[in-house]
Simulated scan of single mutants.
Amino acid sequence: MKNSTLTALLSGLLRGLSALPYGLVARLGEALGSLLYLIPGKRRHILHTNLRLCFPEQSEAQRERLARASFQHVIRSYLERGLQWYGSAQAITDRMELDSAIDLQDRYDQPTIFLGFHFAAIEAVCMYYSIRHPVASIYTPMSDAVTEAISRERRARFGTTMIPRHGSARDILNVLKSGTPIMLAADMDFGLRDSVFVPFFGVQACTLTAVSRLAHLSGARVVPFVSEVLPGYRGYKLRIYPALPSFPSGDVRADALAMNQFLEARIRETPDQYYWVHRRFKRRPQGEAPVY
C-alpha cells in the first residue's frame, strides 16, 4: 500500500476519533490497552524490564499492576491523538487545566527552554501551549514515514516552529535569542554523542547534555514542565515549575543528574503515566551487559 494511501487512512481514523466524545475515546483506549497487554511482545518486555530495574523494592504483583496501568495509558494516548491533532483549539483548551509557577507571556525577558518529559499527556499539553503562545519544538523524527508526515504537520498547525533534533544548533540559538521559547524532551537514550551516564532510579542511564549546553550558549533558563492525565476523564493538566536552580552549573554531568532527579520525583507522583515502553537503558556503560 502506498504511503499516500496509508496517510489518508491514518488521517481519516484520527479525524474520526476527534469527532467522538473525549470520555468515550479515553475508555476505548484503556480497553484496547488492556487487550493488547495480554499479547506478549517487545514493548511489554521493555516495560517489565524498566519497572524491574527502577522499582526493585516493589513486589511482582505491584509491578504487574503498574505495568498494566502504564500500558493502558500508552494506548489511550495514541487514540487521543485524534483530539490533539485534529480537534479544534477550543476543544483542546476545554480539556486542559494549567498550573504555572512562572508568568506566561508571548515574549520573555530571558531566553527560555521548556524541558518536558514523556508522560502520557505530553502531546496534549504541548499542543495546548502552542495555541496560547508562540513556541518552537525540537522533535525526533519518527521511523515510520506516514506517521512522521502527519505528526509534523499537525503539531505545527497552531504555529509551532518544528526543528528536527539533528538540526542546526545555530538555528536553535537564533530562535532562543529571538524571544521564542523552545520545548524539548531529554529523557530518552539518544546515543553516546553529547551524553553522559548518570543515575536514573539508581541505574546508570545515558543522558543528554544538550540541555545544559544550549542553556550555557544562549543564557536561557531551563523551565521543566510535566503533563498529567486527570482522573474521571476530565482531560489533562499542564504543570509548569520554577526554572531549575543554578542550571547550567558549568558541569554537564551534574546538570544531567539534576534533570534525572527532577524527573524521578515527578514519576513517583504518577508512575503509571510515564512512558516505560521506551528503552531508557538501551546503551550501557562499558563492561555492563545489555538489559533488554
Rank of each mutant, 00 (worst) to 15 (best):
K2M: 10
N3Q: 05
L6V: 03
L6Q: 02
T7E: 08
A8G: 14
L9A: 02
S11L: 09
L14F: 03
G29Y: 01
E30A: 06
L32G: 05
G33V: 01
S34C: 13
L38C: 04
G41E: 00
G41T: 00
R43T: 07
R43Q: 05
R44Q: 12
H45T: 15
H45K: 15
I46G: 01
H48M: 09
T49K: 08
T49Q: 10
N50R: 06
L53E: 00
F55R: 00
F55G: 02
E60Y: 06
A61T: 13
Q62Y: 07
Q62W: 05
E64C: 07
E64H: 11
R65I: 15
A69E: 10
F71P: 04
F71V: 02
H73G: 05
V74C: 13
L79I: 10
E80A: 02
Y86M: 14
S88V: 13
Q90F: 13
D94C: 15
E97C: 11
E97F: 13
D106Y: 10
D109T: 11
P111G: 02
P111M: 03
I113R: 03
I113G: 08
L115H: 01
F117A: 07
I122L: 03
A124S: 13
S130Y: 07
H133N: 10
V135P: 08
V135K: 11
A136C: 13
S137N: 15
P141W: 05
M142G: 13
S143Y: 12
D144N: 11
T147V: 12
T147G: 14
A149Q: 15
A149C: 12
I150C: 10
I150E: 00
S151H: 11
E153R: 15
E153C: 07
R154D: 11
R155P: 08
A156H: 04
A156G: 12
R157V: 12
I163R: 01
P164K: 03
H166L: 13
S168F: 02
R170W: 06
D171L: 04
N174R: 14
K177I: 11
T180Y: 06
A185Y: 14
A185V: 15
D187A: 10
D187I: 15
F190G: 02
R193S: 10
V198I: 05
V198E: 09
Q204M: 12
C206V: 12
L208P: 10
T209P: 03
A210P: 08
A210V: 13
A210K: 07
S212C: 08
G219R: 09
G219S: 05
V223Y: 00
V223T: 00
V226L: 05
S227M: 08
V229D: 08
P231V: 07
K237R: 15
R239G: 10
I240F: 05
Y241G: 12
L244G: 03
L244R: 09
L244F: 12
P248I: 04
S249M: 07
V252Y: 03
D255I: 13
A256L: 03
A256N: 02
M259L: 11
M259R: 07
L263Q: 01
A265L: 14
E269M: 15
P271M: 05
P271N: 07
Q273F: 06
Y274T: 05
Y275G: 07
W276L: 09
W276A: 11
W276F: 12
H278T: 06
R279A: 13
F281L: 04
R284N: 07
Q286N: 06
G287N: 08
E288P: 07
Y292F: 12
